[in-house]
Design a protein around this nucleic acid. Structure first.
Lengths: 141, 141
DNA sequence: CTTGACCTTGGAGTGGACTCCAGGGTTTAC
DNA sequence: GTAAACCCTGGAGTCCACTCCAAGGTCAAG
């Protein structure tokens, strides 16, 4: 019989996290001892590992909850999971693309701006950072 | 003479954002009209453009505040800015690397798991998502 | 003179996933 | 028998950069 912090240790989270997952409905309300302590079995370990594993793949608790609800109805969540994963891949590609652009901008910036670039009375980085056209001035309705 | 929302429009932010920056000390307390309205000049436009420009480069308000404080002391912030930018580049490289790993994992996952992969009584994605070794069991102190 | 668009303030809410707290009760080890 | 280490609860705090709110004051157009 597992107490909350033994379970926590087994899956590599804090006890508060488990209580939080319970509050959020990701795991069912735990059985209790006479004195009110939560008790868990191997099923809880599996469930928590599933949650943590899904998180490692960048799924959000809300989405994981959806997956678990499908499983709790006895259905296979693979189709649903596959959709989530496909969507996440697209998001990641998007994110990587954005980061690459940003990285390019930063690299250019760091060439132009440095400790040895300072000119009396002028702050090169200010110009670089302001970047003309910074204001998205509305061009009238 | 610019009111808060005219200034806001000029730099492409909401008026609340400007008041927020003031509260946070990124811009000095604005001059006021007799009736207490904030009034701004071109300097405020420059300052806000600097803030927004720095944000586009992924700098955090706290860091930007640091840059502005250097500038307010009459010094060139380029060295400091250059450090921040270098650090940010490293962070971004790290982030891109992590995202690439994650993307690879997800791609593999989505090959293994799909609507047509379901086997009666078995949920392929559960195994895939659990990933053996999920628990960072402590191996003793 | 009225209407509506602005301005003021302090404070609360957002999202995501925890994390920590006080003020109790319980169990375990010595 | 007592001290340490656990458990419980509800609620608040964390980070970040806003964003929205109510309740009131002010200003410009017609």
């Amino acid at each position: 019989m597992l107490t909350v912090s033994k379970l926590a240790k087994m899956v590599g989270v804090g006890p508060d996290t488990i209580r939080y997952y319970e509050r959020e409905g990701l795991i069912p309300e735990a059985e209790r001892t006479e004195s009110g302590y939560r008790v868990y079995d191997e099923g809880a370990v599996r469930r928590l590992r599933f949650i943590r594993g899904s998180q490692r793949f960048g799924l959000r608790l809300k989405e994981i909850k959806g997956l678990l609800e499908v499983m709790d109805r006895g259905l296979c969540p693979c189709g649903h999971a596959s959709d989530l994963v496909t969507a996440r891949i697209a998001e990641i590609d998007q994110q990587i693309a954005e980061l690459r652009v940003l990285r390019g901008d930063l690299a250019r910036l760091s060439e132009d701006v440095g400790p040895d670039r300072c000119t009396p009375g002028v702050w090169p980085c200010e110009q670089e950072l302001i970047q003309v056209g910074g204001g998205e001035d509305d061009d009238g309705p």
